[in-house]
Each structure stands twice: as structure tokens, then as C-alpha cells.
Design a protein around this nucleic acid. Sequence first.
RNA 1: GCCGCCUUAGCUCAGUGGUAGAGCAACGGUUUCGUAAACCGUAGGUCUCGAGUUCAAAUCUCGAAGGCGGCUCCA
Length: 650
Amino acid sequence: MSSRLTPREILKEKGLLADDVVAVTIGGKTVDLHTPVDATAEVTPVKATDPRGLEVIRHSTAHVMADAVQRLFPGTKVTIGPAIEDGFYYDFDKPGGAFTEEDLATIEKTMAEIVAKATPFRREATTRAKAIEDFGKMGETFKVQIIEAIPEGEEISLYKHGAAGEEWVDVCEGPHVPHTGLLAAVKLTSVAGAYWRGDERNPMLQRIYGTAFPSKKALDEHLKLIEEAKARDHRKLGKEIELFHFDAVAPAMPFFLPRGAYVYNELVGYIRGLYQEFGYEEVITPQAFDPRLFRTSGHLGNYNENMYRLWTEDLFEVEPGQKPDPRGPREVLQDASFALKPMNCPSHCVIFGSKKRSYRDLPWRVADFGRLHRYERGGVVHGLSRVRSFCQDDAHIFCAAESVSVEIESFIKLLYLVYHAFKFEDIGIRLATRPEKRIGGDDLWDFAEKALAQGLERAGLAYELAPGEGAFYGPKVEFHVKDALKRSWQLGTIQYDPNLPERFDLTYVGEDGKEHRPVMLHRAILGSLERFFSVYLEHCGGNFPAWIAPRQAMVLTVSDKSDEYARKVVARLKAKGLRVEADTSADKLGAKIRNARMTRVPYMLVVGPKEAETESVGVRSRDAGELGAMHVDAFAERLLGESRPPRSAS
RNA sequence: GCCGCCUUAGCUCAGUGGUAGAGCAACGGUUUCGUAAACCGUAGGUCUCGAGUUCAAAUCUCGAAGGCGGCUCCA
């Protein structure tokens, strides 16, 4: 048996023990610096600033926070407290309700005391039975459940810190920093409710979020970045530059103001242009439907709680001589009231089934910018990112089963073309598989899930599996991007639906003269225009490129002596199809520039007597700064060049 | 929907039980001005809504609506 040393001792021997080493990795696993291991182990130092080092620091900080909380709020039970992307959290079961913002300051103070004592984090192995007994005695019922969930035979470790007699202990895999003194840059950021084990049927726990860094400086930098991110929040920008508006008369349903509507329409126009090239046809379909449609599609039953229903007076009218409907209003409404469409697919199935289809018509790619309504629960709506009324760049592809993979591949190509045009490079892909609540047999699901996975693999894209997160009618590939505050949102999607064609009994006549069942792909690139708008707005910080900017240039007069010339310039540029306005107010030039900048117009054109003489404009670019004087036509040329949509496929 | 917090002028925000304030925006006037805020004035509020406590409520209590941070759910 070889001897055991701490990784610290091993590093020291090799001269690798720097001050900022907080842990080591052995065979890819992060472990404590201070818990003995096999003396011959290959250890690699982990610095405090490494992602893994940060994780260790944050997880250790979560322990210290839990310690502080249990000191300050006796009777509070601990649950779990992991490190997360930008910090950590810990969930508590606290008698008497939630923590307040003031509590956070108190907790931080107590944490500082624990940190000041710089006591070591000690690892101890224990047995399942012993751990269950010990935590049971402490009344830590949630911890007992956690221990019970650890597979039989696996080693259970405890981590303790604190002075003798007032040690704080948690069941934990580790690793941790050597001692609490290393946790000097901590900030508790917010309180929130969270369900035990993430299930809304479970009791709600009290979560505290915080973050920790190796140094005060790094922490301050992080907090500053958060402040900057908040300044690009689309809800703030949308208000500032008057893009959209919300009102309590239509909760979570946006009002697009003139400038926002311009951008919105440009987005639609851009996608329409690509549809031409990629072989899509557009249709326009109704807004409200007889509920029979959604019974056929399965939406009523699987999507009930998200659907808006409409009632009309005649539902409750009673013909003379007839008995009133014995059912209550709820039953009558559920049975007969029309429904606002939450998706376009049933309409497209209706169109597909409206005439005899031939294999020569396939694949049929049918696009629809129809407005959709989905009732979203109160707590989930969020600016433009999650709304109750929206429109998707939606399309369905009806094709033969054997052409599915080609269609998927070509869709992914189109999707990446669009994302790159908007300069989105950081795209997360997930394959969401069959949910519990679903329609259709398992063999269909097997086939559908495999088809999507193959499509992704064929395109050479890495993806993450999201078991149980598919739509009720089929599995889906989701394309995610993050907003300014690092919240991830799904934009595009492609979904394989083996069920709807079945339910609508859709067929086409094959080459063999027999009837065949087509398959259906649901797909969107931008996803919902609303959500895409929000993400893109944050992505460009409100600085829309010239092709999509609602106003491309603003003519600023030095004084009202130049008003006449300003009007001429505006007319000349407008005649070339450019979107230009003039600021002829009594403000001084400095103020006009400031105002124009706040609207984030791409170009400011200063005009005074000098420019009038030479038919020029003093060009100031939002992105490139001062460009100097330029002939009006030369400027028009330049701006026209920037006014073309990013690309078209060729 | 659940937990917590918030809601005062178009916007951003002061105002801790004695009857409402600032800056910006708007409007009127003066200024004729050269690259990130000229000056003076005017108007604008059932303090989100509804109940209650109190001699008195923006302020305290309860309820509702909307919003914010999370959770759960989703494009």
C-alpha cells in the first residue's frame, strides 16, 4: 500500500504550490488541496481564477452562508447549495417565511465573521446509516432525504468548518477551499422562492443567491458588468427609444410603436425574402376556430390551459319552446366556444387536406406569419421574451418520410444563415424528447427522435439532450441564445410531428398510385418575432444596423438659417428611398446631437451655411464617429450600400 | 400558478400619519447658436384600484390588478 499525502504536499514537493491554488485535479476530477490522496497521484493545480477554482470558491461560500443562516435563524433547515454559472445559491426551509433584503446584509456580516476566523474545511468519510442517524438527530429532514437518495455503497463524505464546539457540517461531495479565510469577496444578490427538488407539487423553499470571487477587485468588476447588462435590458431600451409599450389593458401583449413596428416588419420582410429562395409558400389563415379543429389536433386536452376561448351570445340563447342547456356555463363553453389559435399547424393540415395531393407536390413548405395567442401563467411573462400574443416565422414542411433528413439539413443551413446575418454566434442546441403528456405510439416517437438526432449529426452540430421536454405531438430540436442578463431563450426550432398527419388523416398519392401518409415538420428560425426582437435588441444594444434601423439618418441644423437647406437634404435622401428626418428645433447643435444619439440613429448629418454652399453634409456616424464633410450624393451612396439586408442565400 | 419585493406627473425618482415635490420630456416665449444638455415661464397627479383603521392615509391593515427577481411551465 502506497503512502498518502495531501495534494498540497505533493505540489510543494514539485514546486507548484502557488498562493492562488485552491484545489487540484486528479484524473479530471477536482479534489481538495488538503485531503490526503495516494502519494503517487498525478495532481494538476487549480487556481482561484480558473473556472473550476471559482466553482470551488463559490460552493465553499455557499457552505459559509448556510452556516451563517443557521446561526441567525435557528430552526432553519438546509437543503442544497450548488455553485452556478455566476455564483451560487442555497435553498433553505425557514420557519416563518422568506428572508428579507435586510436579512441579506445581516447574513453577509455573519459570513464575514466566519471568514475572518479562517478555520479549515475538513473532509470526513462516513457511512450511510451513520449519516442518516446524525442528520436525523439534527432535524435536517431534507438532508436525510438527500442521503437516502445516494446509491448504496457509494462513499458519503461530510465537510466541516468552524472552531471546535461550533462546527458546521454538511453532506457534500466537495471539494472545498482549504479554509474559510479564502472567501473574502462575497456578495449576496437576491432572495427567491424555489420548489424542493424543482417540483411545483413540493413545498416551496427560500433560496438566497450570491456570488463570490477570489478578490474584491474581481467581484467589483462582475457587479459592474451586471449593471451594464441591465442597461441593455430590452424592456429598458424599448421604452427609451420608443419601440414598444405595455399596458395593463392587455397584459403581456405588446403594443409596437412606429419605430418598433418598422423593425418588426423588416424582420418579417427579411425572412419572406429567404422563403422565396428556399422554396416556401406563404398562406394566411383564420384567427379563431370551431373547437372541433383543436379536438382533432389534440390541442384541446393537451394544451387546454394555454388556450384562449371566445364566447358569443348565441351560445346561451334559448330558442322559444326549447329547454335551456342543462349543463353549466363551463361545460357549454368548453364544448362549443371558439378558440384563438395557439399554433398554426392545424390550419395547415386543413389546407393540406383540402385537395388531393400528389408526391410531385412534396415536399410542401407552407409558411404563416399568423398571430398566435397563448395564455401564459401570470408569473412567467417577461417583456417581449415571453408574451401572450405573438407571431412566429412559422412554417410546416409536409414531406415523405424518406426526405425528412434532407429537409432537416436544409433547414439547419437556412437557420444558421439567418443567425449569422444577425451576428449570433453563441447558439445552444437541445434535443427535447417525448414528454409524459403526449399523443401517439412509442414506435412513432422512436422513429421521430432518431430522425432529429440524425439530422443534427449530419449537420455536424453538438447538442444537449433534454429528456421529456418535447412537445406533446413530437420531439423537437431547440436553438437557444442568451439575453443581456444571461437568461437563455429558445428562438428557432424544428420538430418532427408524426401525429398530426395521422389525426387529420392526411394523405398523398405516391408514384405507385397508392395513398401514403406524409410526415410533418414544424419549424421556425427566429421563433417568435417578439422574442427574437428582444434578444436582438439586447444583442445590438439598440444600435440597429442601417438596413433595419427605423430612421437611418437625422439632419441637424446649426441654426434656423439652415432650415431651408435641411429640408432640401431630407427630400433628396428620401427620394433615394432613405429614411431621414430633420431636427429643426431651437436647440443648440450640441443638444441636437445628444438627442439624436439617444435615439441611436446610425447617422447624424450636421448642416449649416458652410454645407449649404457646397451641397454637403457634416457626417457623424453612431458607430464610427466623426467622418467629416461629404457631398449629399456621396453620403446617399454610402448609406444605400449599408441599406441592403445582410445577405441572401445565393 | 407559487415565494418575495415594487407601483407617486409621459420618463427617472424624492417624499415614515397633518392634505404632493425635483430633474428630464411637453407647451409658450427669449436666444440664431458649429459637434453629448442655452435661458425664462406655463401646464401636468383620485399618489395603480377597492375596502378598512384613524380627527386625519401617498404613508398603517386587508384584498385585487399590473410589474420586478426567482421557481415551475414554455416560442
